[in-house]
Design a protein around this nucleic acid. Structure first.
Length: 558
RNA sequence: GCGCCCAUAGCUCAACAGGAUAGAGCAACACCCUUCUAAGGUGAAGGUUGGGGGUUCGAGUCCCUCUGGGCGCACCA
């Protein structure tokens, strides 16, 4: 649409009423196509021109004469309807759909970004709430890559905490513990620990030995963490979500980085030892949203708390020299990360940009790993795949697990990604399992329809004459395809992948409307057939690329 | 108690930088397969955008306030 905005801005500038930039900035695309393809609200100009908006619109309408445009003055708006043939040729010839074209246009090629995401406790199978972190981040990684960025994706492994020590304790007599049993073990040991203070004591004893690098204990911790990380990443791997680097928190203890950073902090008068002998960073005056912003960084025995290790890690990330440094974190960490950011600034480092997302709620309350009130990601994946495979079997007479996964995992991702990150997602299994309407399958299905037509096409459709595409469904589809570039850019600017999901649905529905109203292969006019084949081929590309940015695959046949 | 986020159709979500008659899907109702994939399409129905004030030519969108939900409020990770 930018191309049409430019074209119309030139024409408006030629009237001499106002400078081109004023017009260009005011142009917008009307929500209702009855109001034309491009609109100029004239209200803003009323003061400068000392005239009523409706008069301004009337006068501009009088001054404009262009073969490609029909101009109408309506209630202070100047509405432009672009000649469909002109619209089709302008938009289809100028729309960029490939990563290569878009990346080079915005000069982002070769820029680098470090993204840390998910970093969940290595204690059990992830639930769908955790998955929201991974899905949002993975989509953003894809968007950055599409725009030419070099991405470096990190996972911070919290291998030090009490929760790991609990598992080490609980699995002491089960060296070959299976990942799938860990969740129940974790729930059980938490129950037992409530009643039995001995467990708590033993757990802290383990933790203490681990921190002091006791070889046997370290080996036990490493083993259980490795079982967890393998189990967790195997699940994410199935969803196509991968990391470049796994960074272990314990490293900062065992390599004494925490002590070095503590020494740096000691240079600030804001760090003090409290009455219990712990080092505390006074963060008053730092614009942190709590009444008494204090960050405790060590225990009274001088050993580090998580915050200090996290500062060490954040310094490492900030020191990699990437152009950007991004972190995807749950909303529960908002204030905490403000505190970490303030500490980093104090030490002279730039904190990461943060994308926060709200939690996934279940119909009967919120999720908690400890209490077991969860929908596990892997269970959800399996249910989605089974449901998809049933549908495939019903339609095709044979099951197809590979396709079922593409459909099922796509629906899983779509159902979570289509919601704006700052909003709570109410997770309803019934709703998520629905493959009709506003779902990823809708886009995948229509993509397959297009592929089927393209396969049957008996003519080469290069050098098509787009000026033949003048039906209203064609114009609507063309305008939607033309939005592709701006949607990606908008996702990049807002770091909000739900824009992609909304777009792919709207794009697909425009195709579907065109498809049901017009024939593509079964028409006499060979030139029109070529133009339509070219059109749907571009639609397919836009659908596929957008789905890919959401981490959703396509198949040529469904 | 204090701070941040959210509230849109029965349900789940949209609405680009404030713009025109607030849009989809699900559910429920009525239609459309001798025609390129009906996992599709069409129609009708469904709304005082949580309540109240304010700013503006114009408010779902910005400000204030109340209500309800989510999250947080140093010595967990």
């Amino acid at each position: 649409m930018e191309i049409l905005f430019d074209y119309i801005s030139d024409i408006l500038a030629n009237t001499g009423v106002l400078p081109r930039e004023d017009f260009r900035a005011a142009l917008e695309t009307p929500a209702d196509s009855n109001n034309g393809d491009v609109a100029l609200p004239c209200f803003k100009f009323a003061k400068v021109l000392k005239k009523a908006p409706a008069i301004i619109a009337d006068e501009l309408a009088q001054l404009i004469q262009d073969d490609n445009l029909t101009v109408a003055s309506v209630n202070g708006f100047l509405n432009f309807t672009v000649n469909p043939a002109f619209l089709a040729t302008q938009l289809l010839f100028n729309t960029r759909l490939t990563s290569e074209e878009i990346a080079s246009k915005y000069g982002m090629k070769g820029k680098s970004i470090l993204i840390e995401h998910t970093s969940i406790n290595p204690n059990a199978s992830p639930h769908i709430g955790r998955a929201r972190n991974a899905l949002i981040a993975d989509s953003l990684v894809r968007v950055f890559r599409y725009l030419g960025w070099k991405t470096d994706v990190h996972y911070f492994v919290n291998d030090v905490g009490k929760q790991i020590a609990m598992l080490v304790y609980a699995t002491a007599d089960r060296p070959n513990v299976d990942f799938n049993d860990l969740l129940q073990i974790y729930i059980d040991i938490n129950e037992q620990a409530k009643e039995n203070p001995e467990i708590e004591k033993a757990v802290f004893d383990l933790l203490n030995k681990f921190e002091h690098n006791d070889a046997d204990t370290v080996a036990k911790f490493e083993h259980i963490v490795s079982v967890c990380i393998k189990g967790q990443t195997a699940i994410f791997d199935q969803l196509g979500i991968k990391w470049d680097s796994f960074d272990y928190e314990s490293r900062y203890i065992h390599q004494h980085t925490t002590e070095q950073v503590l020494d740096e902090l000691k240079k600030s008068p804001k760090l003090f030892k409290d009455k219990d002998g712990r080092y505390v960073l006074d963060q008053h005056g730092e614009d942190i949203g709590i009444e008494n912003p204090m960050l405790v960084v060590t225990r009274n025995d001088g050993t580090s708390l998580y915050a200090l290790r996290d500062i060490c890690y954040s310094i490492d990330k900030a020191s990699t020299g990437t152009d950007r440094n991004l972190l995807v974190l749950g909303e529960d960490q908002k204030v905490y990360y403000q505190q970490i950011s303030a500490a980093l600034k104090l030490l002279g480092y730039k904190p990461a940009e943060v994308v926060h997302y709200s939690f996934v709620l279940l119909p009967d309350g919120k999720m908690s790993t400890r209490s077991g009130n969860v929908v596990l990601l892997e269970d959800f994946m399996r249910e989605m795949t089974e449901k998809a495979n049933e549908a495939i079997t019903e339609r095709r007479g044979a099951s197809d697990i590979e396709k079922a996964k593409i459909i099922g995992y796509g629906a899983l991702k779509y159902s979570i990604l289509k919601c704006s990150p700052e909003k709570n997602v109410l997770f309803d299994m019934q709703n998520a399992l629905n493959f009709n309407g506003d779902s990823s399958l809708y886009a995948q299905y229509n993509f397959a329809r297009i592929q089927s037509i393209l396969k049957k096409a008996d003519i080469d459709f290069e050098n098509a004459d787009y000026s033949l595409l003048i039906e209203k469904e064609e114009s609507a589809l063309i305008k939607e395809i033309a939005r592709f570039e701006s949607v990606i850019l908008n996702t990049y600017n807002t770091l909000n992948p739900s824009l992609l999901a909304n777009y792919v649905y709207s794009l697909t529905s425009k195709f579907s409307q065109f498809y049901t109203n017009h024939s593509i292969l079964n028409i006499e006019n060979a030139e029109l057939k070529k133009a339509r084949l070219s059109l749907i081929s571009k639609a397919a590309t836009a659908i596929k690329e957008t789905l890919n940015l959401l981490g959703i695959d396509t198949v040529d046949e469904l």
